[in-house]
Design a protein around this nucleic acid. Structure first.
Lengths: 141, 141
DNA sequence: GGGTATGAGACTGATATACTCCTATTATTG
DNA sequence: CAATAATAGGAGTATATCAGTCTCATACCC
């Protein structure tokens, strides 16, 4: 099973693209650059907009741009916006479905692993990805 | 999103139950003890059997028992048997769906996080859970 | 052979994934 | 200042996965 869905993958690509552009970029351009189905990306960008991650401008020369610095935007932010909270097991986020919460021998252990993963995802920033692409481009010159 | 499905959760419960019983246990008993829908658990046990995690015996006084020591059975084993390989992103396991593999700035980072999570899940053993239950029972006496 | 257990697999409802299509808004242009 | 073209916004759809149920066959013990 994949922890990160394709939707999140596309969102990460698009946000990296926006980080490099540093200006309003239309979905059509972004979709072509990042090899994402444009109509699908449009929907994803809307979610990111609702979450306050990107700003939008309609009409000609409009599009999306980052609402905050790429350094302050983590993979975890994107995962949580697109997929919802990332948890090891449903029983951790929704105790009511279990009823064994008091004595479940896995709960504490798995919960800790989930927290660890979240912390690591929070440390991977969009700027890291953008910088890597930037360096590769300069090296190619 | 939950990384571990309910099916895996049920499998972990059942295997912990078997570790404590240390004998053939029918699905009906196991299902009642662990609060799992019996027909569903039957199907799950079959998967665990096909994977060689449990042994089966048909007929009266039959049921399932662990095929190996609970100390040598990890949560990762169970996750992989029930859900398939656990990977951060689909593009890591199936490069052909991406086409950006050479320069994707997230691939290496996410792949490392996935490997780390797998390693940690491999260190949580069914015996850990069984021992905890055992201790709690003795303390309650 | 009767009763108890697993083995194999078809079937189903609900939810999530992955994507498409149509509509509303905005900015420039004549 | 209306027409138009470029954009975002949001509804809708097909397929897969999840979470289970049900049925029938097979094996085993007494």
């Amino acid at each position: 099973m994949a922890i990160i869905t394709r939707e999140t993958d596309y969102a990460l690509r698009a946000l990296t693209g926006l980080a490099l552009a540093d200006d309003f970029l239309p979905v059509s351009t972004l979709a072509e650059q990042e090899e994402v189905p444009p109509d699908f990306l449009r929907k994803i960008m809307q979610r990111l907009h609702q979450a306050g991650i990107v700003e939008s401008s309609q009409g000609p020369f409009g599009g999306y741009r980052l609402a905050r610095s790429a350094r302050r935007l983590s993979v975890l932010d994107v995962v949580e916006t697109v997929q919802g909270p990332l948890v090891m097991s449903e029983c951790i986020s929704r105790p009511e479905i279990c009823g064994r919460i008091d004595y479940c021998p896995f709960r504490r252990r798995l919960s800790a692993l989930g927290a660890g993963l979240n912390a690591k995802l929070a440390k991977v920033r969009i700027s890291d990805a953008a910088n890597e692409i930037q360096s590769a481009r300069e090296a190619a010159k």
